[in-house]
Design a protein around this nucleic acid. Structure first.
Lengths: 268, 268
DNA sequence: CGACTAGTTGAGGCCAGTCAATGTTGGTGG
DNA sequence: CCACCAACATTGACTGGCCTCAACTAGTCG
């Protein structure tokens, strides 16, 4: 109960060596059990983005009772936290979340920014507990996919199994890209790459690819890119001054995409 | 054939926008088909490190005809490369390999250093082709695990399936740690963390945890840690001067492990 | 309105990169 | 066995990019 209260306030929970809390669904404000009609994956408009891609109708039917719970999160609330026992994957239906990496010494870093259709919680499969914390950046809704059910269906359907593997693997690939970014790019290149990535992901979801809203603060973006907030701020200003983008608070407009790509591309 | 020749020389293949080559087993010097007795996972001394952990005897038997091929690599040879079609996972039996990340613009970074008992190739599951290149750092031997067989067995055995998932997930966790390192640590902290990681992994394999041989050059270590070779060299000297380690070429001795841990731990 | 959070911008410092010279090691062929 | 070469490594001097510290502004919420 106290946990819930704390979360409602939306405190980022700056965990200096947090006594790894058990976090379950009770942690979030509203978990709701849903009627079957509400949860059928086959009726979900995010179909092609999720685990249910490319399945025959028989298999799709298997999925229909996979999701029995959906969770609503308010901005700032935690979906799961590091050390919390892993029981399910989460598919984002609406809104967006960030994942936060926490080291024992209090060091922390934003590990990812996640949009509708993406699946969260994959990091927990390994040792039954989550390794990072997921926090809503705005009011959001996620589907709960109990992992034992996921594994069960994967055993029954090779196609679904393959989707699961693909998702795990894609997560690996995503992180690879980030490692390259963190390991080899200058600050301005990192920011440009970040903006282009956002643009591309928004486009894939049917939103404008040239104008969008940053859901993260300068500090969060900086943390994600291994930089400080001041650097992010300065660079946004500079890119604007150079005419590559237009910034107004959190609203960003990409003006010269080729130039941005070129900036990212120059390998020194 | 030409491919083999090139590889024999051990050229690092500095691929500036390499025309993504198809790489198969023919690429490596000696792929050998083995008798059943030679390849039984149940007889492998790396048992507990590999996919066959925690299985009942029935399932273990399933694995016995999983590995039909083993590959020998000489130092500098490539096991698979980016863009090569993904057909199998590879379990390292002896030796060590590095994985190399390649961006389209020629940027490249060492993504990992891999030891016996570890599994390579997980990044290929997603889109049927490898996303990085694996190169032997010394003469090595790996078991070939055809991935369709792996998936098949996973459908038959929940325990094995779980191992597969665990492995994929662990890879994600490993990269997470690296991201934290690249995103938040100073150069000396990165190097200390690297040395401690090696130490711990050598220990887990029954080798000395306080004295070991670096199988990578300063340049490769630097690339792995997002630093330059000169920085690595300087830092190794400095850590030696401070009495924390002892370095002699590639032979490293950890003298003050607590101090190293403390160095890594201080979050600023 | 005051308190607070998020963001911008400037001045100065330091850490790691760059460039360059030199030393060391290991493999190869005469 | 030694000479030679190439790859690897060390060290120094200098530079520059990003961080730190700090002051100030803009927007938000009770």
């Amino acid at each position: 109960m106290e946990a819930v209260a704390a979360l409602q306030v939306g405190i980022p929970l700056r965990t200096t060596a947090m006594p790894r809390a058990r976090a379950t669904l009770r942690d979030v404000s509203r978990a709701q059990t849903l009627s079957r009609a509400q949860t059928q994956c086959s009726a979900c408009n995010l179909l092609d983005k999720c685990l249910s891609a490319d399945l025959d109708t028989d298999t799709t039917r298997l999925l229909d009772d996979l999701v029995t719970t959906r969770v609503r999160l308010r901005k700032g609330e935690t979906l799961y936290r590091a050390g919390g026992s892993f029981t399910a994957l989460y598919a984002i239906r609406s809104g967006s979340l960030k994942t936060l990496l926490l080291a024992e010494d209090g060091r922390e870093q934003v590990a990812g920014y996640h949009m509708p259709g993406e699946i969260l919680g994959l990091d927990g499969v390994g040792n039954e507990e989550h390794e990072c914390q997921a926090i809503a950046l705005e009011d959001s809704e996620v589907c709960v996919l109990p992992f034992d059910r996921v594994e069960q269906i994967a055993r029954e359907s090779a196609a679904f199994q393959h989707n699961v593997h693909r998702y795990l693997s894609r997560e690996i690939a995503r992180q690879r890209t980030l490692m390259l970014l963190l390991g080899t790019m200058r600050a301005d290149q990192r920011l440009a790459a970040f903006l282009l990535d956002l643009s591309q992901r928004y486009q894939a979801r049917g939103y404008s690819s040239s104008e969008f809203i940053l859901r993260m603060t300068r500090e969060e973006i900086g943390s994600y890119l291994g930089l400080k907030l001041e650097t992010i701020s300065r660079l946004l200003s500079r890119l604007q001054q150079e005419g590559l983008i237009q910034v107004q608070g959190r609203v960003v407009k990409l003006l010269e995409r080729p130039a941005l790509r070129q900036l990212v591309g120059q390998s020194n």
